[in-house]
Structures are given as C-alpha cells and as structure tokens.
C-alpha cells in the first residue's frame, strides 16, 4: 500500500458572476474517507470535478508530494490519479462486460482481472445485459466495478446512494469499505450523511462557497460520529 497526499488550496470557481467555491482547501490521503455535505447547488459536483481534473477552476493550487503547482500544471496527474463517479453513472453502449473490458483496455496496467471485478461487485447475473437498460442501482454497481478495475489513488463519488434502496446502500457501503481498506482515498458528496458514519474520517461542509471542516464535537442530530467510528471494526 502506497502512501500519498494531495492538498488542494485556494480552489475558487465562478459561473458567470456567481462564486460557487471560494478559497477552498481540502486534503486527501491514502485510506482516508471524506464526506462532503452541502445543500443542492452548493457546488459539490463542481468541486469534485475540479479535483478530478475534469473541470477547469478559476484558480486552484495543488500540492502533490512536496511539489506545489498550479492546477493546470497538475491536471494530467490529477486525471491519472483521481477518478470521478457521476451521480447518474454513464455506461457505454453495449453489455456490462464490454464496459468492464473497456476499462481494462484503457488501463492495461490494471492489477485486477475481469473475473475478479465480476465477483467483487457481484455482477454475474447481469454481465451480459445491455448496460443502458440496467436499473439505477445496478448501474452504480457497474460504475464502482469500473473503479475497482481502474484502481485509482482516489475516487470521488457524487451522491452514489441517491437512488438506492436499503439493501443496495448496504452493499455500496461494503464495497467502499473494501476500497478504503485497500488504501484508496475516498471523497463522497452525499445528502445521506448518516449512512457513512462508520467509515468517515472527516466531514466537510460546502456552504455559500466556503468549505469548512465540521469539528468532531459538532455532532449531527446527537450522533457522536467520532465514537461511532471507534466502535466500528476496521474503520
């Protein structure tokens, strides 16, 4: 398991005249689980896409290892090391298997095989289905299996449980726990914060452009999530 640290600073983004993110700082480490909360339209998606190198911010600096550079100079590296999962996953035309094979084709160095991914995300029963026809929960599972195959340093998930039933949520949680255990850095934007209490190491709130660290003592509705985490195994 490799150790890493990505520190973003001064992330600022504006749509026309509206500032959605202002001087935000966020650090991601190996095996660290960060929960990102915020109201609709707060800028969570924007922030995750900037971190993934998919969307150009007005301004941002990134510290990787010991080297601090402008976002633009690190963009290629961010695209290599980070992976962003859309709230509504986009699966390519063709079967589930084709989607997984595609991931392997563009990641020839992957240390996982197709069979491992199928077993890991329990896709055996839908592997031959046309991906476009899957249910929302099944699509999420394929999307996370692609992340497993890609094996990035960090995954950024955009409301991965928004359309899932209870059983699927638990399943998603298990998969994320395994990824975290394997040393992957995880950032999740979610409106379902209590779901991740057992996994989260840090909780950030995006509000009126400001990204603030919710201190452990600022309990959410009486749940002391720091103690909750201590009790959970392996977290």
């Amino acid at each position: 398991m490799s150790r890493f640290r990505y520190a973003f600073q001064g992330i600022t983004h504006r749509y026309r005249t509206r500032t959605v993110i202002s001087e935000a700082r966020i650090t991601v480490r190996d095996g660290q689980f960060t929960l990102l909360v915020g109201d609709n339209g707060a800028g969570k998606t924007t922030l995750l896409k900037i971190m993934a190198g998919l969307q150009r911010p007005l301004k941002a600096e990134v510290l990787i290892g010991e080297v601090q550079r402008d976002w633009r100079q690190w963009r290629k590296r961010l695209m290599e090391d980070f992976m962003y999962l859309h709230q509504q996953p986009y699966l390519f035309d063709g079967s589930v298997e084709r989607n997984l094979r595609y991931t392997l084709r563009v990641n020839p160095q992957s240390c996982h095989t197709l069979e491992q991914a199928i077993e890991w995300a329990d896709l055996g029963s839908i592997i031959d289905q046309p991906a476009k026809n899957l249910s929302g929960g099944e699509k999420q599972r394929v999307a996370i299996a692609r992340a497993f195959l890609r094996d990035p340093k960090v995954i950024l998930l955009d409301e991965p449980t928004a359309n899932l039933d209870q059983a699927s949520k638990r399943r998603m949680l298990e998969l994320l726990e395994k990824l975290k255990g394997g040393g992957m850095g995880i950032v999740i934007a979610s409106h379902d914060p209590d779901l991740f209490l057992s996994l989260q190491d840090e909780r950030l709130q995006l509000r009126r452009g400001r990204l603030t660290n919710l201190q452990p003592r600022e309990k959410i509705e009486g749940v002391d999530w720091i103690n909750h985490r201590r009790r959970s195994p392996g977290g």
Partner: peptide, 12 residues
C-alpha cells in the same frame, strides 16, 4: 458524461 467518463476511466 460520455466524454468525462471515458477520460476519468483513464482514456487519453
């Protein structure tokens, strides 16, 4: 999302 997905999956 098609383009973004391909890129973030590691496609050049």
């Amino acid at each position: 999302r098609a383009w973004e997905t391909a890129r973030t999956l590691g496609a050049d």
